[in-house]
Amino acid sequence: APPNLGLSYRALDCDDPESEQAALVAMDYLNKNLFRGYKHTLNQIDKVKVWPRRPMGEVFEMEIDTLETTCHALDPTPVANCSVRSMAEHAVEGDCDFHVLKQDGQFTVLFAKCDSSPDSAEDLRKVCPDCPLLAPVNNTKVVRAVEAALTAFNTQSNGSYFQLVEVSRAQLVYLTHTTYVEFAIAATDCVAKEVTDPAKCNLLAEKQYGFCKGSLTEKGPLNGNEKVAVTCTVFPIQPQPDNSPVATPPAKLPEAPVVLGPLLL
């Protein structure tokens, strides 16, 4: 139920500094609580209603449009340093509802609900006729490309064996028979070169994540054999002080529903 039934709300300009301040706190909260997909950045404040709250404070009821960045949700890079996914890369938009409490000059997020959706194929075609569309992450070519890229990474690795956390995005380029994938990985307690049965490897207690971009080019009439390319960035282990306000990814990330563009919070 909306807060404080019976009292009227104060309308506020969406570009008012107070609206912007509340929106930035909401975005910071969102990105701190996202563990799959990509960080999001504020694109537009759609609506703001400011409800009085008994006994004190006000609740900002906000609708915010966001855009996906190119930084994975588990990447420690500050979102201000992350590029916004361009339309030609098949942009993904977030639609968020937030309730943000303002009390004693401090903003605190009370409620957040976001959904993300990729740009339409038609709009992408208008911007870039030849750019590849996002592909479903459970597409067989995508699954195959992720397996091949992760195997190639672990084969080259002198350290821990990394296992797959999630497939974040994928695109198929039919012209060159190439599948491009981006996926998140996590270090396990196995040594990559000694792994015989990956099922026996367990995630490290102190989580160490990484993010990979890979491609698999199938053998075709022009080239004799399959070609795999992969580059991974392994993130430093995030020291988590006990009272850290930052949410830590759950031990076992919940299975994301297989949809285009992972669902946000």
């Binding site: 969406c14 570009d15 537009q44 339309m87 942009a91 740009d119 709009d123």
Partner: peptide, 27 residues
């Protein structure tokens, strides 16, 4: 405008600018 007597009612219609500005691009 229907408002509680204690709430000051703006003299004329106050235009609220929403949605706000687009910071990157609209899809």
């Amino acid at each position: 405008n229907v408002a509680q007597p204690s709430v000051a009612v703006a003299a004329g219609p106050v235009v609220h600018l929403c949605p706000g500005r687009i910071r990157h691009f609209k899809i």
